[in-house]
Design a binder for these strands. Structure first.
Length: 542
RNA sequence: GCGCCCAUAGCUCAAUCGGAUAGAGCAACAGCCUUCUAAGCUGUAGGUUAGUGGUUCGAUCCCACUUGGGCGUACCA
């Protein structure tokens, strides 16, 4: 539909030059009486041309040449909106398209040939994934899914570091628990990892090695084993909600390959760093940021900024056209440093898209749970999946815009699991599957030869909604607005449920019944395609 | 103090570059199953879009200030 409009406007632009000067945005009005698509160009132009918008609108409409069997009428309304009404028989053509393209309906080749990387989760292996990580995990995977739909070849990557103070503390936590199991008197510091999983790992080591490890230090087998077990756990948790990484990038590799060293040299050579108080500072103020930051501490250890920059350079070197980073809001101060440094080094930092999602506030018994992996005060993602299932978890985190703070009331999530909107979508899909089973028994199949019989309001509304799907996917993917897939699907499901209530298939005249079956298949296909972007299953029965 | 994000119906959230009468779900109330799944449908009620000013044909959206909240602001990651 939109493409047709763009076509006729391209022709009109030959006559009216000013149409070339603005971007034409066709929107779906929020009120049906304003047509299927609406254009506000006349109002925008009125300022530029200093003319009455309604006069401009009339001039535009008069210059359009269109097929009356496609566009039924064009109105000028309000201050100068141009409203387009498509014919009902044209609307039905979307069914042919969907039934031909099937799972590819909604895909676009706009960005084919390009490679993207989505970096997400990136939690260090110090403990299980929590509900807090869940939002990052689900949104990251969904962004990756969306980019794939618009043509990108996407890699999912998890960046982590297994060095540093936190990991030393982790190793020592396991060591102390191990000694404790062997009957030693220990003092377990408050700022050590308090979680049960530490004891479990210690217990494994005791079972396998007896008391042979008493003289080992924290950094050796204790830390290594902890990392291995925790990672195995993290990967299992990810798999439960359908996430599979292409690569795990260990920060340590940056040191091994000498990238940290050479990056430091490059900063020095380009006069972007200086020494002060035994530390090395990056001249971020000269690059437009607020303050210079330390990249190598006086102890000789680099701060996280340096490997972060080096890591992003590897992404450029690996040839990605788009690099998406998904962070929680606690990182909102760090990425400008990385981007500024990359730019100063000559990389096109526009190719890096940083998405910051706000935190999830967990409410348990009406109170806010402050999550801390170290203090073992957390609710794991696994516990949540056990409680409500993977589909609900994926849908819940995909339902809202990432800039919104998200309240997660655990009691409510459990109690209302039956009323979660995800079931509304899945129910629509299952209902259609059921219809298809029943109609088959009645000897009815789908037919595309009498689609023009689909003239009722609920049928027409469904058709128009279906038409919008590819545009919607493209828009959402290019703007990283994952939650709008959920909104679209809820609207589609609502239109279907209404259609279901108003329009019967079995019992209708055969030609009409078969056209309606075709419509059902089209709706089912789009529901399934949309749900698969979200990573939510589309059941055939519920 | 400074920076980023947020404030919309009782609750959780939408609103496609600034568009027409701000929409859903949940909760509440009133209806709809001898016929394809009632996990559904229909209707009612619910709003000074935190507040004040500004920009213009038009502001939930942009700007300024105020109030309230989240996260940062480390030689932690």
């Amino acid at each position: 539909m939109k493409n047709y409009l763009l076509n006729i406007f391209m022709q009109a632009a030959n006559k009216l030059n000013y149409l070339n000067e603005i971007e034409l945005t066709f929107t779906v009005p929020n009120q049906k009486s304003y047509g299927d698509y609406s254009l506000n160009a006349a109002m925008i132009l009125s300022k530029k041309l200093n003319r009455n918008p309604r006069d401009i609108a009339k001039e535009i409409v008069d210059s359009l040449e269109y097929d009356k069997s496609i566009i039924e009428k064009i109105d000028i309304a309000g201050p100068g909106f141009i409203n387009f009404y498509f014919s009902s028989s044209y609307n039905t053509q979307v069914i042919n398209q969907i039934l031909t393209e099937k799972e590819n309906f909604g895909r676009s080749q706009k960005h084919s040939g390009k490679r993207a990387m989505v970096e997400f989760i990136s939690a260090n292996p110090t403990g299980p994934l929590t509900v807090g990580h869940g939002r990052n995990a689900v949104v990251g995977d969904t962004v990756a899914n969306m980019l794939e739909r618009i043509g990108y070849k996407v890699d999912r990557e998890y960046y982590f570091n297994n060095a540093g103070r936190q990991m030393r503390v982790l190793g020592d936590s396991v060591r102390l628990r191990y000694l404790e199991l062997l009957g030693y008197q220990i003092h377990f510091p408050e700022d050590y990892y308090q979680g049960e999983y530490i004891k479990e790992i210690a217990s494994m080591l005791k079972n396998e090695h007896g008391n042979k490890l008493v003289d080992e230090d924290a950094e050796g087998i204790f830390k290594q084993r902890a990392e291995k077990e925790i990672f195995a756990d993290i990967i299992k948790s990810m798999e439960r909600i359908g996430i599979r990484m292409n690569n795990f990038y260990n920060e340590h590799l940056l040191f091994e390959e000498g990238r940290i060293e050479s990056l430091l040299n490059e900063f020095e050579k380009k006069n972007l760093s200086y020494k002060k108080d035994d530390a090395v500072w990056l001249k971020l103020t000269e690059l437009g940021n607020d303050a210079d930051k330390v990249i190598v501490k006086s102890s000789g250890e680099p701060t996280y900024r340096l490997p972060d920059i080096a890591y992003h350079i590897t992404k450029f070197e690996r040839g990605y056209d788009l690099m998406v980073d998904l962070f929680g809001s606690d990182h909102n101060a760090t990425y400008p440093d990385v981007l500024a440094a990359l730019k100063a080094l000559g990389y096109d930092s526009e190719k890096v898209k940083v998405l910051i999602h706000q935190f999830v506030t967990i409410l348990q018994k009406g109170e806010v749970v402050k999550m801390s992996t170290r203090k073992a005060n957390y609710i794991t993602l696994d516990e949540l999946v056990d409680e409500v299932g993977a589909d609900v978890v994926r849908y819940f985190f995909n339902m809202r815009g990432i800039t919104s703070h998200l309240n997660f009331d655990l009691e409510l999530a459990k109690k209302q699991s039956d009323e979660n909107p995800v079931f509304y979508l899945q129910y629509a899909h299952a209902r259609i599957a059921s219809i298809l089973r029943m109609t088959k028994e009645e000897g009815l199949g789908s037919s595309l030869s009498n689609l023009e019989l689909l003239t009722t309001e609920s049928e027409q509304n469904l058709l128009k909604k279906l038409y919008g799907f590819p545009d919607e996917v493209l828009y959402i993917a290019e703007n990283y607005e994952t939650h709008r897939i959920a909104i679209y699907l809820e609207e589609l499901a609502a239109l279907f449920h209404r259609f279901y209530t108003e329009c019967r298939i079995i019992g209708s005249e055969k030609k009409l019944a078969e056209a309606r079956i075709a419509l059902c298949i089209a709706v089912q296909t789009v529901l399934k395609n949309g749900l698969s972007i979200l990573g939510v299953s589309a059941p055939d029965s519920m």
